[in-house]
Simulated assay, not measured.
Amino acid sequence: YKAGQAAEYSIFEVVQRWIAPNGKTTTIARLRGMSIMYYDLWNECSDMEVRKYQEYRAYDITPICTYPRQRFIPELKRNGFKGECCGILPYDLFKAILSDSRVETLMKAGQYPMLRYYLNRSFDMERYWASVKICIRNGYTISDGSMWRDTIDLLRHFGKDTNSPKYVCPSDLKAEHDKLVQKRNRQREREQLKERRQEAKKHEKEYRKLKGRFFGIVFTDGTLNIRVLESVAEFAEEGTAMHHCVWSNSYYLKKNSLILSATIDGVRIETVEVSLKTFRVVQSRGVCNSNTEYHDRIISLVDSNMSLIRKRMGKAA
């Protein structure tokens, strides 16, 4: 294009993707530059020759999006293609429905979200295929392939029948998925706590030697109850329940730290660290290191009872 002149357009071919009716493919293209960051670095002086497929997908083209005239071989129509690529690259879709009977089945059954997920992720579909067929037979559309697959894995983990429509065709997939995830998390926490208790046994004697003088310290304001953790096993329980580092960072071995637990009606609220050098609250953390609505009140209550800790420290001296 130049000022005062009409624009001129030209086309320079760089790629051809060939797909046989059996799904086998060949790419014919010109040479490319070395960079994998740009898709348009073509060597225009090179010949159109058979090229090895590039993992960075430089050869991917979407003719259905750009070219108005379309003609499809009968094999594609036979295998369920009706002109819509369902958000999948045409090359990937055509190759798959010509070579994989499961893709053909998903296409014909209208299971497009599961089809997209299957072609975009690398996983063993055979492990889930029986459950997929249960969904198809019961007219159930899998709305989210990733979430449904996770749900099947969780059902299998808990020994549920993954050939039963009751389990594999949930009316609310997200709710069922979240319920199973929570159940699995609780199971993992129990397993983790069991392992931590076993580990705790190795350090109980040392912890009692370091902090035994403070055992029995308890104070309350009528609602909040705050007490010193009296065993390493309690550190394991506290860390597991509160999802913070009081266990993983081995606070039970820190000579100048005293750890207390603040509860209301037996429910843990925050974990408190007191410095045995300065006799001040170093930190007070709720679940996942958050501050609760009782945070300031907890610190104030500990500060007002710091004399109990000083007294025990003085006796030991």
Rank of each mutant, 00 (worst) to 15 (best):
E206S: 06
C65G: 13
C85E: 13
M313K: 11
Q182R: 14
L119C: 09
S99L: 11
Y140H: 05
K211P: 01
S171I: 14
N305V: 10
P68Q: 02
N289Y: 08
E195N: 11
E230H: 10
R156W: 09
G286P: 04
L115Y: 08
L253F: 04
T263N: 06
E49W: 11
V168R: 08
K311V: 03
L173G: 01
Q5A: 15
T240D: 03
I142V: 15
D265L: 09
R196N: 05
A130Q: 14
S122Y: 09
E44V: 10
P113V: 12
C85P: 01
Y39L: 10
L119E: 05
E13Y: 12
I264K: 07
K277P: 00
S171D: 07
Y56W: 14
K254W: 00
L155D: 02
E293V: 13
R197D: 01
S101H: 14
D60C: 08
K205C: 01
L180T: 05
R116I: 12
Y38P: 03
P63A: 11
M242E: 12
R297S: 06
E75L: 11
N22H: 15
E126C: 02
L173A: 05
A7P: 13
L258I: 03
F72Y: 15
M114W: 06
K24E: 04
Y38R: 12
L173P: 12
N185H: 14
F72T: 02
S275D: 09
R116W: 10
V132S: 00
R297F: 06
G212Q: 00
G80D: 01
W129M: 10
G139E: 03
Y1C: 10
N289E: 06
V232Q: 05
N79S: 06
R69V: 15
R310V: 06
L173H: 12
M313C: 13
S35F: 00
V228Y: 00
K52D: 04
